[in-house]
Nucleic acid binder design. Sequence first.
DNA 1: AGTCGACCTTCACC
DNA 2: AGGTGAAGGTCGA
Length: 420
Amino acid sequence: MSKGHATAWAQLPVSLNQLCLATVLRCGQSFRWKASGPDEWSCGFSDRIISLRQSPTHLHYRATFPSPPPKSAKDDTVEIVKDYFNLSIDLAALYEKWSLADPNFKKKAGEFKGVRMLRQDPWECLIGFICSSNNNISRIGQMVDKLCATYGTPLGTITHTSTTPLSPSSPSSENKTPPTEVAYYSFPTIEALTTPDVEETLKTLGFGYRAKYIYKTACMVHEDRPKGFLNTLRDEKDYKEAHAELIQFMGVGPKVADCVCLMSLDKMGAVPVDTHVWQIATRDYKFGKGKHRSLTPAVYEAVGDLFREMWGDAAGWAHSVLFTADLRTFSDRLENTKTTTTTTVKSKTKVEVEVKEEEEDEEEDEKIKLEDVKIEEVEEEEVKTIERRVRKRGANGEVKAEVVVKTEEVTERRTRRRRG
DNA sequence: AGTCGACCTTCACC
DNA sequence: AGGTGAAGGTCGA
């Protein structure tokens, strides 16, 4: 595989209030972006690999083509980038509006600026979120990778440089891993996923029951719908119509349909209600006041309506900010909210020393904490102290240090909630 | 209309 | 160290 032909880096003026790359590319909208270097991200598109970097004032981009483009061809990467990031929409103005309407949004948004919706390809979005059902973000990414490597088009390789400097096994000064060549692929075409082997192949690749969903949906789109059908849902159908069309597909329920509407079809009011959003609605907005036993279609719609009434036409965009704040990957940024966290920041070199020492003292600490728990239990209250290691990242997503986060979870009468 | 179990696999947590 | 539950749900009864 050839190394490809990279264009020079170019840039667009974009502030961090408009776009926070490291957050947007990791918050579960798209599952295909890879960290290709410190503060650098890359993803295969239809005919090129696009790489991105961000400074406080600019979004930097370049393309790597599998073969040298004809000299007459003009590089339209800038158009792709503008479109993909929905850059014509003024996110900062929307934040102002949502903050005015909702104190909780205002509180959370401070640490999560620049969270905007991508404008993805509807087909890729549809398949990506079929993979997401009853699944975790890490595995979804692995599955989409396999899907592209198996049924996509090779686009060449990108040299990845060290992105994770913290490795306990290496000496403290030696925290660089050697550069590696990583292959990139396009997302498979609709037709590529209609061959008879697809279901079985995907099963062997670990897709589980989703293998059938993907195959069936590909066949439905390819054989029973007019050409370009998914893209017509953008302009020719409104939100409700598009949603109704999407849930016809195998493996697509209301939640996945809302993801596709919001993230690829310009339906800014679509609010995908998943476990996180359900938690947010009931915990932070007291939705239903503990009434509903399950998320029925009626309740699902009511949750969306609540957010649409509060945040307005672009409620789906606002929802994404709070959804992101709720993700564990980013939870270390919120320290003034309901989670009681104490963080200990250590320098990179110190961390490794600390890790080894802590392993020896760990048991002692655990016992002390367990005794605390028992004292609390007498008062019909369970306090769990959860300790975990988190990589501290700056606004740009660069790893600054590793921290130990201690979270106290208060449980009362079976109702799990965090200390307020 | 609302409820329930099954469904693939992985990963973190106990 | 092995078991267990949950992971950005959906389907069929």
